[in-house]
Structures are given as structure tokens and as C-alpha cells.
Amino acid sequence: MSQSNEILVRVRDADKVFRRGSEEIHVLSGLNLEVPKGEFLALMGPSGSGKSTLLNLIGGLDRATRGTVEIGGERIDSMSDRQLAGWRARHIGLVFQFYNLLPVLTAERNVELPLLLTHLSKGERRQHVEAALKVVNLSHRARHYPRTLSGGEQQRTGIARAIVTDPTLLLCDEPTGDLDRKSGDEILSLLQALNREQGKTIIMVTHDPHASARATRTVHLDKGQLVTEPAP
């Protein structure tokens, strides 16, 4: 499936300022970004360039000091914390560098977590979990706890958790940053397949040019500003 011209993510004049004592740190400065639906976008840049902060703003995990963030036509910067939590549950799939699986839950229970926020019955949730685990090719490890899974398997569990609710947008923060090359490649192939075959819009933060090469577009950030953004 290819990308459409419909803009899914629109960030306008976004500033993000952190305060450390009396010092102000400008992490993002007047940043503008548009991401069309169906795109696989890589955000690259050196440490401290603001790429993770930008990802957090788009995911509703943090708020811009100034500017607007619009996802699928909804202004998330004006939502309350409670509204944002519900919005994230419906629209965002998150993939973390360190997987962020709950150690006390099996892989399938971890994948089921976002579904607990929906009104699906237990049987429906099971079907969704099985489908998601099948997509990431991890059905045979469903009842394993994270500590018994390899890094690659844990990340695939994390991806299954991210896609189980069929979100509008997948946000991946250094998804291969903690993996060896082979496992990293598997994860990137999986993300690529999700983008190509299921039309998932993906924004991925990465340091790795090898990873960004898998994306349909790469933008670079430096000192809180986009250095290059080829037209979508």
C-alpha cells in the first residue's frame, strides 16, 4: 500500500523549552513538520537534537511550549491529560528502544494490555492478540515471560503490542537501538512490511543510517530544527 496525499501529522511552529533551575534549554525551536498518511518517516539527528522530544509531542506524551500538533485533524495540544490518555489508547502504537514490557506478564498478556482499555470481550481480545503475535511471527512464544525472550523477540512483542489496537500512527523510538544487527534487520523488515502491506504510518527515531534507509523518507534534526525536509 502506498502513501496518500492526506496529511496525518501536522506540527506547526513547535517550541519546546525545558527549564533547569533558572536556565532555559530550547530543545525544539519553531519546528514545522507534515507527515502524510501511509508514510514511513525516519527522524535522524545527533543526541540532543530534539528528535525524541518531537516524537513525544506527536505521541501526546509531552506538550509543546508553543505551537500546535494536529494528528488526523485533531488538535492534541489542547487536550487535557485525561483526553490525551484516551486518545493515545485509540490512535497511537508505541515501540520503545528498551521494549518496556511488563516483566510479570507473558508476551500475550503484554500484547493484550492496550486492549484492556477497549470494550472488547475476552474472546475478542484473545483473537486480536493472536493476530498481532502472528504478524510479528511470535505465536509460538506467546506464553513466555519477557525474561525468557531474546532482545529481538521482546521487541517483536513490543511491536505486536503497538499494532494490536490497529492504531492510526506507529511511533518507534530507536526500535533497533538495543539489538544486534541481525535482530535489528528483522525488526526493520517487520516495520517495513507493516508500512507497505498494512499501510501503517510510521515515524521512527533512529541514529542508524542503516535503519533510516528502510524508511520512505528521512528528515534530520539539529539543535531543535529540521535541517532538511524534502517535500512529501
Binding site: G59, A85, G86, W87, R88, R90, L102, L113, P114, R161
Partner: peptide, 11 residues
């Protein structure tokens, strides 16, 4: 873990 749950949408 708590932050992960919050990020996933738990209130």
C-alpha cells in the same frame, strides 16, 4: 512500568 502503562493510555 507505570510510565509505560500511562503511555499506552492508562489514566
Amino acid at each position: 512500568e507505570i510510565a509505560t502503562l500511562r503511555a499506552l493510555g492508562f489514566g
